[in-house]
């Protein structure tokens, strides 16, 4: 394709039929609290790692629900646990990340 100096951005549509939600399912089983997440973003606001890595627990959970890759975000968590202190739903996000790291399989 010739280079026009611009291109079409990749489709961001999510096909729930073709997704592999195995990781999220497993996480839901281990950490039922994750289901109560309402994506308010308090965790992202409190995150120390977000400044230099784009880490956000909210985004992480959304990405998991959409079958997207979370390795980079997961790999930058320093486990300081502020996200779990500010969570209005009382989700233990710190343990959620530890559990996710345990069940994560590298492609």
């Amino acid at each position: 394709m010739p280079d026009f100096g611009f291109s079409l951005s990749k489709s961001s549509s999510v096909s729930l039929d073709s997704l592999d939600l195995g990781l999220y399912g497993e996480l839901e089983r281990l950490e039922p609290g994750v289901k109560t997440c309402m994506a308010c973003g308090s965790c992202s606001a409190a995150c120390t790692a977000s400044v230099w890595s784009g880490m956000s627990v909210r985004k992480l959970i959304l990405n998991l629900q959409r079958g997207k890759d979370v390795e980079k975000m997961l790999g930058s968590c320093m486990l300081c646990g502020k996200c779990s202190m500010v969570c209005p739903r009382g989700i233990n996000t710190r343990h959620l990340i530890l559990s996710l790291c345990r069940i994560y399989k590298k492609q």
Binding site: W52, E71, L74, G75, S76, C77, M78, L100, C101, R102, I103, Y104, K105, K106
Partner: peptide
């Protein structure tokens, strides 16, 4: 003692 599928790596930060 636990084994993790993914371990953070800050050495290259």
């Amino acid at each position: 003692m636990r084994k993790y599928g993914l371990s953070q790596d800050f050495s290259g930060l």
